[in-house]
């Protein structure tokens, strides 16, 4: 049975338009003009228990709006959301006990307090018995390696440590579902990896269902088994990671460094992306031609170095964005 069910969800914002200058300001007071922005249009999907789902799309696609409607922050205009049998618009408090949220850099922690004090505060918010919280904190301390900074005020922590604490704080009440909105934004690669490990571990240890938005493709690649892509407020793709790669990875990139200059032209199934005489970049559509054909075309004897690679996931995704616009 699905743990999350989103049906025909829509949300429109009314944005006030403002003209420049004194006259514009006066006009706006007397007769304000509004523009309707449909942030989310008729979105539907289902998520099973224990899934790790990436919810991605370009800026302004409606990701945050959707995630906020699911976590009862925003009221939908149309459609319904069902999370573990609860309706976010009616059962806000009941739902709050079941879900955890981490919203990128919007901080939920008290910065002058230590993570330990913060965790205790969150424990109280979720009505957890103080002795149970203590145990829980001890458990997390080990599992998520918080030891070195659990007693340092949050404002003295690095950004990565803070985000780690944000995530742990959102886990205090053992939520069944965790919503993460851009958890790795602004972090360096090492810390990103750290956070990813944390998320993976959480999913494995507690069977937490994870719903994650990110702009970072490696987040998605490394964490998620399923991807939902939205653009302009609509779902443009909802598929497993494997399928996504399979369907879109039928193109290979061939980078070659040549001994001599050669001149090539596009052929059926082989496109020349870059031709700088000695350095060439070809794209091979392997449904039509093989990579070997491409190498033959280059003349294997003249190749100094060659690199054959997949089209990066990032390019695949941005292609999907572009095509569906």
């Amino acid at each position: 049975m699905a743990i999350i069910e989103v049906k025909k969800l829509s949300k429109t914002f009314k944005v006030k338009l403002k003209e420049k200058g004194l006259i514009g300001s006066l006009k706006a007071i007397i007769k304000p003009k509004y523009k309707k922005v449909e942030a989310v249009k008729n979105i539907s999907f289902e998520i099973e228990k224990g899934e790790v789902v990436a919810f991605i799309g370009p800026n302004g696609a409606g990701k945050s709006t959707t995630i906020k409607m699911m976590t009862s922050i925003l009221y939908p205009d149309k459609g319904s959301i069902n999370i573990m049998g609860l309706d976010p618009t009616k059962d806000r408090k009941k739902l709050a006990y079941q879900i955890g949220t981490v919203f990128g850099q919007k901080e939920q922690l008290w910065t002058h307090l230590t993570p330990y004090d913060n965790f205790k505060f969150f424990g109280a918010i979720y009505d957890i018995n103080p002795s149970v919280i203590e145990k829980k904190i001890d458990e997390f301390r080990e599992l998520f390696e918080l030891d070195e900074f659990i007693n340092t005020p949050v404002r003295n922590l690095s950004l990565g440590q803070r985000i780690r604490c944000e995530i742990v704080a959102s886990l205090i009440h053992e939520p069944k579902i965790l919503f993460l909105d851009e958890p790795t934004i602004g972090l360096d690669p090492v810390v990103k990896e750290n956070i990813r490990t944390l998320i993976k571990r959480m999913n494995k240890e507690y069977k937490t269902t994870i719903f994650l938005t990110s702009h970072d493709v490696s987040d998605i690649e490394k964490l998620c088994k399923r991807v939902i892509i939205i653009n302009n407020g609509q779902v443009v793709l909802d598929d497993s990671m494997e399928n996504l790669k399979y369907h879109y990875l039928n193109k290979k990139l061939v980078d070659a460094k040549m001994k001599e200059k050669i001149n090539l032209d596009d052929e059926e199934g082989i496109t020349i992306l870059k031709d700088k005489g000695y350095n060439l970049k070809l794209e091979v559509d392997i449904t039509k031609r093989s990579v070997a054909d491409a190498i033959k075309l280059l003349d294997p004897d003249k190749i100094i170095d060659i690199n054959i690679s997949n089209v990066p996931l990032e390019d695949i995704i941005s292609n999907i964005y572009k095509n569906k616009e």
Binding site: F13, K14, V15, K16, L17, K18, E19, K20, G24, K35, A39, S64, T65, K68, I73, L74, Y75
Partner: peptide, 15 residues
């Protein structure tokens, strides 16, 4: 009013 809460999405656009 909370039903109308826009969570910061209500930035006014400039023409």
């Amino acid at each position: 009013g909370l039903k109308r809460y826009a969570s910061g999405n209500l930035m006014s656009a400039r023409v």
